[in-house]
Amino acid sequence: MTFSSQQRAVFFDLDDTLYDHLIPFRTALTRILATKEDFPYEQAYHRMRYFSDALSAELGGTPTHGEELHQMRRQRFQMALAEFDLQLTSEQAQAVQEEYLSLQYAIGLFDGVKELITDLKARNFIVGVITNGPPDHQMNKIQALALTKLIPEDQIFISGAVGFTKPDVRLFQHVTDKLGLAPENCCYIGDSWRNDVVGALDAGWKVLWFNHRNVTPESDHQPHHLVTGYPEITKVLLEQM
């Protein structure tokens, strides 16, 4: 389906934007490594995401299958947790990764997401998702969140299926070309500075940076809005966009 170039559109990142990605991370570390309550889970999670993005970039985009994918997933845990005095063997990193993966389908949307998407659609916004990762893995999460009840599958774009990986502007351009939208009428909401803020801004989109982990910008890019929760996101989208 294509739309008018004048149509306003809102697209969301998936991981740690529509649901709390920290929960499966924390549970995996607790179960496999017996980390304690006072372990800095949020800081470690942020570093894991950082290394995941950095390693993916070195490989030219998020790998979607094979040994490259498995090695990247192990290394991101080893590199991140080493900063917190946890030296993981390859076997331990694999065990953490497998537990983390198994927990990613027992997830739920952040409070306010369903209501916001419903309100946006009622106001004639196009609503979609743009996410990095292997198609089957990401779609399993999308199904677990029941997002396809809210968003048509042809408005859900997964990097592994498209062939371009955020922050590559070609992924965002693919979305606007596929749906007949104008970049200046598209807004993207995401938590990752590198993937979401940089990628969408460079593609000419409006950007809401969902910085609910209170992390530091990595470049001079200027998102249009900085938001830390869904009440703020809702207010910006429904009152200012």
Rank of each mutant, 00 (worst) to 15 (best):
H65S: 15
V113Q: 00
I32G: 06
E153N: 11
N211S: 06
S56E: 00
M139T: 13
L201I: 14
E83I: 08
H225P: 06
T176H: 01
T27V: 15
F11L: 06
V197D: 01
Y100N: 01
P40T: 13
T35I: 04
G133N: 09
R170W: 11
A161H: 02
T27P: 03
T30Y: 02
H224C: 01
G112K: 05
I189V: 15
L55Y: 02
L81I: 09
V10M: 01
R170C: 11
L181W: 02
D202N: 15
M1Q: 09
A82I: 07
T131H: 04
N140L: 05
S5W: 07
V236Y: 07
S4D: 15
W209R: 10
S4K: 15
M241V: 01
A182R: 03
Q7T: 13
V10D: 02
N124A: 11
T118G: 04
P183D: 02
G229A: 11
H212F: 07
R8T: 11
H225T: 10
F12Q: 05
I130C: 00
R76D: 06
E239L: 11
A203G: 01
K178Y: 13
A34T: 13
I126F: 01
N132M: 05
G61S: 08
L238P: 00
N140R: 07
T234I: 04
G204Y: 02
T216W: 03
S192W: 00
A95W: 05
D20A: 01
E184H: 13
P135D: 13
L33K: 02
N214Y: 12
R123A: 15
G66H: 10
M1D: 06
E67H: 06
P24T: 08
G60N: 10
G163F: 11
V175H: 04
E68R: 10
L18N: 03
M1T: 14
